[in-house]
Every structure is written in structure tokens, then in C-alpha cells.
Simulated scan of single mutants.
Amino acid sequence: ILASGLPMHTAMMIAFVLNAVWWIVFTLPLARAYKQKHYIEPERHVIHDTFARLGKTLSSIKKEKKIFLFLLAFFFFIDGVYTIIDLATAYGTSLGLDSTGLLLALLFTQIVAFPASLLFASLSKTQDTAKLIKICILAYFCIACFAIQLDNIVEFWILAGAVGCFQGGIQALSRSYYAKIIPDNASGEYFGLFDICGKGASFLGLLVVGIVTQYTGQQNLGVAALTFMFLIGYFLFAKAAKLEK
């Protein structure tokens, strides 16, 4: 769009419209086929009853060790994933990429992520989901190790492609695995906690990278600290996977 000579403001408006059309087109099949099987009848005291159900869910998670360990593992490894994505633009800028180059790199990541996600979806039909999640976590561990010595644009593009290969897979597989181990009649509350662990963890990785970088003066050492988050997430998940539902 920018290459056509349009102003940046106009180009952004067109991009947002195309994005909205994309979401509408791919949401329609889901909206037509989706059926709510488990739900809770509306109650008189909505706020009070909502917090009461949340407290009940938190109490039940304490008893369900498998769910608790998975959420704890998810908190660590998904935060590492989000941190790598957030740091991508900073890395690209430090290597000399302009805004157009960064946009192309992000686009390349998404182009790679689309067929990779379909591949993981196909593998999940014949392979153990827990095994595939472990592979994704170890892959991100290797990506973090590779990012430690990253110092040129070619390696940055390799990193972008590697992230794209596992970005969609680790998120989709985690949601799928979690859906299998939680109670069907309380999926809303449990997935609410799942989202809290995912979105709420997004600060930890950046905090660790920032503290290590500030203390050592080297951003690469800050990225190296992410490897421990993936290791913690891997061992917690491996422990959770061994437990019965």
C-alpha cells in the first residue's frame, strides 16, 4: 500500500478495514456452526454470584493438581513466547531495520505461522498433544538461545521464521490441551483463569530482561534469562502431563 504512493494515514485506514473484513469472513463459519452446550442460567445477584463462582473455581483448582501445574507452566512458557515477540521490534531496530523492514518481518512471521499452525493441527490428530507442546517449548528454548548471539539482519530473519513456525502451534495446542483437562460445565470460569495466566504473565519476561540488561549493560544477557523461563515451564508441564485427569 505504501509503495503505491498513498499517505501513511490513508494506508493505515485501508489496512484496518482489510483487517476487519478478514475477521468477519473467518468468524461467520464459526458463528453458524457453534452451539453452546454448557452454560449457567442468569442469576439475580450477578456480581455477587460471579465472584462466588470464581472463588469456588479457585478452590477446586487447588484440589486439581494437574490443572494447577499446567496453569503454572503456561504462565512461564507463554510469557517467554510473548516476550520474544515484543522484543522482536527492538532487536530489528538495533540491527538497522526501518519501519518498513520491521513490518515485512512481522508479515513474514505471520505467513510462516499460517501453514505451521495447520501442520500442528494435523499432527494433533495422530500425535499426543502433550508431546507436541513439549516440542514447541523446547523449540522456543532454542530460539532464545539463538537470539543471544544475534547480531545481523540475516539472523534476524531466520529468527522471525523460527518464531512463526511455533508461535501459533504452542498457543493453539495449549488451549486444546487445557480444554481436555478442565470440567466441561465450568469451562467459562476456567478459561477466564487461563486468559489471566496468559495476559497477566506478559509483564514478567520483559521485567526480567529489563533488570538483567540494566544490571549487566548487555541486552543479549537479558534475553538469555528467558531460557530459564522456558525450562521452568517445560519441567512443570512435564510433571503435569504425567498426572491423571
Rank of each mutant, 00 (worst) to 15 (best):
P29C: 10
P29S: 01
L30K: 13
L30T: 13
L30F: 15
L30A: 12
A31C: 14
A31H: 06
A31E: 10
R32D: 14
R32K: 14
A33H: 09
A33S: 05
A33D: 15
Y34L: 10
Y34S: 04
K35P: 13
K35F: 13
K35N: 10
K35Q: 09
K37Q: 09
K37M: 13
K37E: 15
H38P: 08
H38L: 06
H38C: 07
Y39D: 12
Y39H: 14
Y39Q: 10
I40G: 01
I40L: 08
E41I: 08
E41L: 11
E41K: 03
E41S: 12
P42A: 03
P42V: 01
E43F: 08
E43W: 11
E43V: 14
E43K: 14
H45Y: 12
H45K: 06
I47E: 12
I47R: 12
H48N: 07
H48E: 15
H48Y: 15
D49T: 03
T50P: 07
T50I: 01
T50A: 14
T50K: 07
F51A: 01
A52G: 11
A52E: 12
R53T: 06
R53D: 06
R53Y: 11
G55M: 01
G55Q: 04
G55N: 03
G55F: 08
K56A: 11
K56W: 06
K56T: 05
T57F: 02
T57V: 09
T57H: 05
T57K: 00
T57E: 00
L58N: 08
L58A: 02
L58T: 07
L58V: 07
S59T: 07
S59W: 02
S59V: 02
S59H: 05
I61N: 02
K62H: 13
K63L: 04
E64S: 10
E64D: 15
E64H: 07
K66Y: 06
I67Q: 00
I67V: 10
F68I: 10
F68R: 14
L69I: 08
L69E: 07
L69R: 01
F70W: 05
L71K: 01
L72W: 02
L72Y: 04
L72M: 04
A73T: 10
A73Q: 06
A73W: 08
A73C: 07
A73G: 13
A73D: 08
F75D: 00
F75W: 03
F75H: 05
F75K: 00
F76W: 02
F76H: 08
F76T: 15
F76L: 06
F77W: 03
F77I: 14
F77C: 03
I78N: 07
D79E: 09
D79H: 04
V81N: 11
V81T: 14
Y82Q: 11
Y82V: 14
Y82W: 15
T83P: 05
T83R: 00
I84K: 02
I84T: 02
I84N: 07
I84Q: 03
I84P: 03
I85V: 12
I85G: 03
I85F: 15
I85H: 12
